[in-house]
Design a protein around this nucleic acid. Structure first.
Lengths: 237, 237
DNA sequence: CGTCGAGTTGACATAATTCAAGTAAGGTGG
DNA sequence: CCACCTTACTTGAATTATGTCAACTCGACG
């Protein structure tokens, strides 16, 4: 799944074991709710999922979007109560596995464990990019950055299907919850981007017309440049 | 250093090895600059350090504060170019070690490697808390949350020294860069908190007078409740 | 002493929110 | 197949939070 380097057969097996079980959920389903006791991680096989936290005043912050191939629910690595809610944006297929499986990985496949740590770290850097986006850029820039982030991440997996567009499964309210804006204001920003010919909507899809200009305006940094795996331990098998 | 569980002598040795070398830097020194090639992680032994990114328009976002005992510079686990700048807020003592040392840890001390992953994960959750703070709370709340975060983290290490106060080494501009606000507005928020008797400043220190009320207003969540290590592998030695 | 960085304060400008009302599209029961 | 409802999207006007600019104070430090 996360093919940043050539895996040995034994490592492939170990990864496959994590995806042994499969669970399908309909659009809108809650995978797990914040404050619930949680022991499972998931590999997302199909569909989109978002992670969010609710605040006292009823507002909500979307923390992360996950796409096919992503690992989610990492928080159980540190805490036994889920700090965030996971919710399906589309019909999804997920492969749950207990965190005890990680134990096996650390003991028998140190290289895989280290690779997972590297991938998690890359996600953390993505989080800091979003932090800078929320803290220091305008509404327009935040919306633009979100759209670009979705596009580049989908394109990484399926370059042919997502040359310059993707299905718009997020409502404007959800975009607002991700960018720290109001649904109303998100709407205004999207139309302004559209009027300037930077993006176009239609048929339930979002198309990025001028990726370069949008990237500049959004202060967006594409970090899909490969993860550096040169320090990883050698494979054991 | 990170005593979330009892370590074996061999594990203690391995950790001690990471702290073999020591480097002292004066206040204001840059440990490493963003975009620099970077291979080293650090254990912060003494002093405070912040991590920040600069945006095109000259503004800056402070991503994280690090205190004694913290591990920093994790980004080299995934990338060979530093995504953020590390800068000393006080005179500091750091213990640098190459990321190749991690290899040794994964191969010989899987339990330690897993513990480090858990600690990193806890930091990631802290990042998501800040994301929600920037995205969905008012200026007052963000400033309050930052102050509480500093207090609770320092108190975790030195409960007696930091009952309810800490040295205010951050300028108001830096507080602004951390919370996504202007220095001017930070000033107004701090005085308003002070006028309401929630905090008090004096002698270069910040004192939290009404932690409970401040916590409520800030939407702050204290996650210093122990990291859950029950899933970790057994020690090898 | 004089300079400099940090903090403080007021007047004003602007970005984003709130409120309110309306339209379009999709789903459901009759 | 239509009438109805609901949910998402759109738009304008009024309001508010935060930013900008500019001036002033204060203490530290050379």
């Amino acid at each position: 799944m996360r093919h940043y380097l050539a895996l040995t057969p034994a490592e492939e097996d170990a990864l496959a074991r994590l995806e042994e079980h499969e669970r399908k959920l309909p659009r809108g389903a809650v995978v797990r709710r914040e404050h619930d006791r949680a022991r499972e991680l998931f590999v997302l096989r199909k569909g989109w999922i978002y992670s969010s936290v609710g605040l006292d005043d009823g507002s909500r912050q979307i923390l992360k979007l996950s796409f096919p191939g992503d690992l989610l629910g990492h928080s159980v690595i540190a805490f036994s109560d889920a700090p965030d809610t996971l919710c399906a944006l589309t019909d999804v297929t997920i492969c749950p596995f207990d965190r005890l499986e990680l134990r096996n990985l650390f003991e028998r496949h140190p290289r895989l464990a280290a690779l997972i740590m590297a991938v998690m770290q890359a996600e953390q850097v993505a989080l800091t990019d979003r932090l800078a986006s929320l803290g220091r850029t305008s509404a327009r820039a935040r919306v633009a950055a979100l759209l670009l982030d979705i596009l580049t991440r989908l394109r990484l997996m399926k370059p042919d299907q997502h040359r310059d567009s993707f299905p718009l499964t997020l409502t404007q309210e959800q975009i607002g919850d991700a960018t720290g804006l109001t649904a109303v204001h998100v709407n205004r920003m999207i139309r302004s981007l559209e009027e300037e010919g930077l993006i176009r909507r239609g048929g339930g899809a979002m198309r990025i017309l001028d990726e370069q200009r949008l990237t500049g305006l959004a202060n967006y940094i594409d970090r899909s440049a490969e993860i550096d795996t040169s320090w990883l331990p050698n494979s054991t098998a």
